[in-house]
Design a binder for these strands. Structure first.
Length: 469
DNA sequence: ATGTCC
């Protein structure tokens, strides 16, 4: 008896050695080779009957482990062909982003998808990708900045009532930007989200609580901003309680800061470990079953990060309104990096929007342009083929590196001057020229949202980029 | 997006 006989019998890898060891023991006990091969065949057919003890126990246990691993691999196997999905503004989307969406639509858990006109390449799911999955949540389908969101406050003031110098002073005093940045202890503000019992329900959340307390009410870096500008409402909107006209308004873009980033990192790694056999092209799309412990933990942490991000906006807007001595006439907000349980074609699915604005029928949303381009207050049309979604902005047309190589401070300053925008902070990588034309992106999604109002930025604060403007 | 590995 040797390994060749056993491989011929169908044993693989570690099972070959264990089968040989058992066979040798049986030969020693005086059994004929034919009888031993017969016994080995029986172990192979029903390893669960032999795993409890005896000369074949180790072999049987190995066979059971191998079968389980095979099952895990099979459960991770991709479809040969992506499910179909609709694309808005295909002429504005680079092939790399489409390729990423194609991979996402090959996941065995995927059921439906759509691509928004601001789409561009990201980690795993492209930014601007919408993906509906069955009983599965994909950490990289939500993204690193869990709960990244927009908020608008319409103030009872005329746009001209706030001078540039005053607006700059308010932004400098009442907002905080930069990686790792929090409010000074004496300036920290409290918020209901910090008193939720959820923080006590996972060691990870307990661990991140102090950081969350430290950073609440702040804005982070990259494309995050707080700005004063003019909101122009063409028609009166009874639901918003606003007459047609021009208003001073505050628009902010912020996320869940270091807290959300660490939640994302933790669960992305966990999802990867759950899918050791997943095809390499889909490695960053590893998912967590929502009916499992890990999936439930992510769902809880993700939703807390979503509420925390909105709390950041709440405090930003409350500080500025208070400093101006006014109460907002109206507010709107939306998350654009999150997953929701929604009914799609009669089935409850997990709809991931990674850089996509929820646009259910009647739902308000905010779609910003760039530091110097208009943003839009929109109302969703609930278009089913788009999974009731819209773009979350203009979308990059130049990567950060490409923007820094292609553009100069002069280019950005000329653009700002041309539109009467004052910028505090900001980097070349966030230059308006690095973004698609928001007007074009909006024009590609007239079936997804109705535009209610245009917001033109006047005084903008962002983090200091790696290369300042 | 985040002090870019708890």
């Amino acid at each position: 008896m040797n390994g060749k006989h056993l491989i011929k019998l169908g044993f693989e890898k570690e099972a070959v050695g264990l089968a040989l060891k058992a066979a040798t023991a049986r030969e020693g006990a005086g059994l004929a080779r034919a009888d031993i091969l017969h016994e080995l065949g029986a172990v192979q057919a029903a390893p669960q009957d032999y795993a409890g003890g005896g000369v074949y126990a180790l072999l049987a246990q190995m066979l059971l482990a191998q079968a389980a691993a095979q099952q895990v691999r099979a459960a991770s196997a991709l479809r040969a062909v992506p499910l179909p999905y609709a694309v808005w503004g295909a002429d504005l989307i680079e092939p790399g982003a489409r390729a990423q969406m194609d991979v996402a639509m090959r996941l065995p858990v995927s059921r439906a998808g759509a691509m928004m006109p601001d789409a561009h390449v990201g980690y795993g799911l492209p930014i601007g990708g919408v993906l509906a999955a069955e009983n599965a949540v994909i950490p990289y389908g939500v993204g690193v900045d869990i709960g990244c969101s927009m908020m608008l406050s319409v103030l009872p003031m005329l746009p001209g009532a706030l001078k540039v110098a005053e607006a700059s002073g308010l932004l400098l005093r009442h907002t905080r930007f930069g990686a790792g940045v929090g409010f000074e202890k004496r300036d920290r503000q409290d918020h209901a989200v910090l008193h939720e019992p959820t923080w006590e329900e996972q060691p990870l959340l307990r661990h991140l609580y102090d950081k969350a307390v430290n950073q609440i009410g702040t804005s982070g870096s990259g494309n995050h901003f707080v700005e004063f500008g003019t909101l122009s409402l063409a028609q009166p909107d009874p639901e918003l309680g606003l007459e047609a006209g021009e208003y001073l308004a505050v628009l902010s873009h912020s996320g869940s800061r270091g807290f959300g980033a660490q939640v994302a990192g933790h669960f992305t790694a966990l999802a990867g470990r759950l899918h050791p056999g997943i095809d390499k092209v889909a490695q960053k799309l590893a998912w967590l079953p929502l009916d499992g412990e890990e999936g439930q933990a992510y769902w809880q942490a993700m939703n807390l990060a979503g509420r925390y991000a909105l709390a950041n906006h709440d405090l930003i807007h409350a500080r500025l309104a208070r400093a101006l001595g006014v109460s907002p006439l109206a507010q709107a907000s939306n998350s654009h990096n999150l997953a929701w349980k929604e009914v799609v074609d009669g089935q409850e699915l997990i709809v991931h929007r990674k850089g996509a604005t929820p646009a259910a029928k009647g739902q308000l949303g905010l779609i910003p342009g760039s530091m110097a381009d208009p943003g839009y207050l929109v109302r969703g049309r609930g278009h089913a083929p788009a999974l009731a979604s819209a773009s979350h902005g203009a979308g990059r047309q130049l990567g950060r590196r490409a923007a820094q190589n292609a553009l100069s401070k002069k280019d950005v300053q000329a653009y700002l001057e041309g539109r009467g925008v004052t910028l505090i902070g900001g980097g070349i990588d966030e230059a308006p020229q690095a973004y698609k034309r928001i007007e074009e992106v909006i024009a590609r999604q007239t079936d997804l949202v109705d535009v209610l109002a245009e917001f033109r930025p006047h005084v903008v604060r962002m983090d200091t980029g790696s290369e300042d403007v």
